[in-house]
Amino acid sequence: MAPQPPAKYQPLGRAEGQACGALGLLATAYYAIPLGLNSRTERAYEAALESVPGATGLINVEIKEDWAWILLATTRCTTITGDAIKEIKG
């Protein structure tokens, strides 16, 4: 999921990010329309990085998936938590 951490880094604190997508039904259960499903893990990772100013990566990453029915669709959310780090060059 997360890239290898750099050789030298500074821990910055705990980070968390969430992204959701939906799977809408069209006419019957056999015709489904994905809405943002495939990119939700990447978007959650980016949101986690953005939650800590200066973060360039995450270590000790945990992923949590939740889903719920909404009328004729399901929503699926991915939450990523981890320790934010900043690469130290040199």
Rank of each mutant, 00 (worst) to 15 (best):
R43A: 11
N60E: 14
A15Q: 09
L49W: 03
P53M: 02
L35I: 09
L35G: 00
A32D: 01
A55C: 10
W69H: 04
Q10V: 07
T74W: 04
T28Q: 00
E62D: 14
P11E: 15
R40E: 02
L23E: 05
E65R: 09
A55Y: 10
I59W: 10
Y45V: 00
T41E: 14
L49M: 08
L72S: 09
G36A: 13
V52H: 04
A44E: 05
E62F: 03
E65G: 00
G13Y: 13
S39D: 13
I33Q: 02
E42L: 07
P11Q: 01
E50Y: 12
I59M: 12
S51M: 04
N38H: 04
A29G: 13
L35E: 02
R76C: 10
P5I: 14
G36H: 03
N60S: 14
E50V: 01
G21V: 02
T74D: 08
E65P: 00
A19P: 03
G57A: 00
A29T: 11
L23V: 09
T74M: 11
G17F: 01
K64P: 06
W69E: 11
A19M: 03
E50K: 14
A2S: 15
C20Q: 14
S51G: 09
Q10K: 15
C20S: 15
A73G: 05
G57E: 01
T74Q: 13
Y31E: 05
A2M: 15
Y9V: 10
G13M: 15
A68Y: 01
Q10N: 12
D66W: 07
Y31G: 03
G54W: 09
P5L: 14
G54S: 08
I59F: 08
L49D: 06
N60G: 15
I33K: 06
R14C: 00
K8S: 14
R43M: 04
I33M: 07
P3H: 04
E42F: 01
T28C: 10
N38A: 04
A27W: 07
W67E: 11
L37C: 07
E42N: 06
L12K: 15
Y31K: 01
A27F: 10
A29E: 07
R76D: 07
T56H: 06
Y45H: 07
L26E: 04
S51Y: 08
S51P: 05
